[in-house]
């Protein structure tokens, strides 16, 4: 079976025979041994859908195998809960079910190491205080300023900031939920003037072209427009921590490939 999946999900082509199987599965009484076999056929038949969705969530710090497993759990739930006689299309039911399972996984596993609940909460408090203070001060706050606002000792702020480093906020709330400002693309569209100062720009240019547009924008705002991470965060509509992670990753990517041309 082909692994291609139409994102709109019509029950035609590769999956047409599964729709019939689905109805059979719904009709079979729970005690019928045939039911288990049909269920397995359905799960393995729709597996490419789960794998496709898992791949869409790849590259965010979780292994593809883990994601495929999580997506499969979502698929099994979808197969079991789907009611074909309600007239809905299986895909319109299964895709949100599987995606929901993947999102939940990221929410619960977004921390790369075991971080105690207390530190997770502390980290969230620090982040919201950071956003608020940045607006008040017009710059990123100092740890002591966050400590004052939250009325906790500075040592706790530092602890919370360190915990934040363990948080690979591949957190989908950030990755998918936030609305990046798309007009920025035009703003930084042409970097030729800025690049004039860089002597190895000919090696740099094709690498910049490979970057996702938002990452390229963030890089340009930091290194060519000389904005601070906090200012970029505000313009792009993501957190400063997220800007920081994007910049580190992008610099690592560029450094690795630039050096081969040194």
């Amino acid at each position: 079976m082909s692994s291609s999946v139409s994102p709109t999900g019509t029950e035609h082509g590769d999956y047409a025979h599964l729709a019939a199987l689905q109805r059979r599965y719904a009709e079979l009484p729970a005690t019928d041994p045939e039911r288990q076999r049909v269920r397995e056929q359905l799960i393995s038949g729709y597996l490419p859908v789960a794998e496709h969705l898992a791949r869409r969530f790849a590259g965010r710090g979780e292994s593809l195998e883990d994601l495929a497993q999580v997506a499969t759990i979502g698929l099994i739930n979808a197969v079991d809960r789907f009611e074909p006689d309600r007239g809905a299309n299986f895909f319109s039911f299964a895709i949100p079910t599987i995606t929901g399972e993947l999102r939940r996984y990221f929410r619960d596993h977004g921390w790369s190491t075991k971080v105690p609940r207390r530190l997770k909460d502390l980290h969230l408090d620090i982040r919201s205080s950071q956003t608020q203070l940045s607006q008040q001060l017009g710059r990123a706050p100092r740890p002591s300023e966050i400590a004052d606002q939250l009325e906790i000792p500075m040592s706790e702020v530092i602890e919370g900031l360190q915990a934040g480093e363990a948080y690979r906020s591949s957190s989908l709330d950030e990755m998918l939920g936030e609305q990046a400002n798309t007009t920025l693309g035009e703003f930084v569209g042409d970097l030729d003037d800025e690049l004039a100062i860089i002597e190895d720009r000919e090696a740099l240019r094709p690498l910049l072209a490979q970057l996702p547009p938002r990452d390229r924008t963030i890089l340009a705002l930091r290194f060519f427009r000389q904005l601070t991470q906090t200012q970029i965060a505000e313009q792009v509509g993501i957190s400063q921590m997220h800007v920081s992670r994007v910049l580190s990753q992008t610099l690592g990517f560029l450094r690795e490939r630039m050096d081969t041309s040194d």
């Binding site: 706050p141 100092r142 900031l161 991470q229 906090t230 610099l251």
Partner: peptide, 19 residues
């Protein structure tokens, strides 16, 4: 962080040292 640098400066220093 212990020297009370603002969060942008902390992140910049981290990246600069990494580089």
């Amino acid at each position: 962080a212990r020297a009370d640098f603002d969060l942008d400066s902390i992140a910049d220093l981290r990246m600069a040292v990494d580089d």
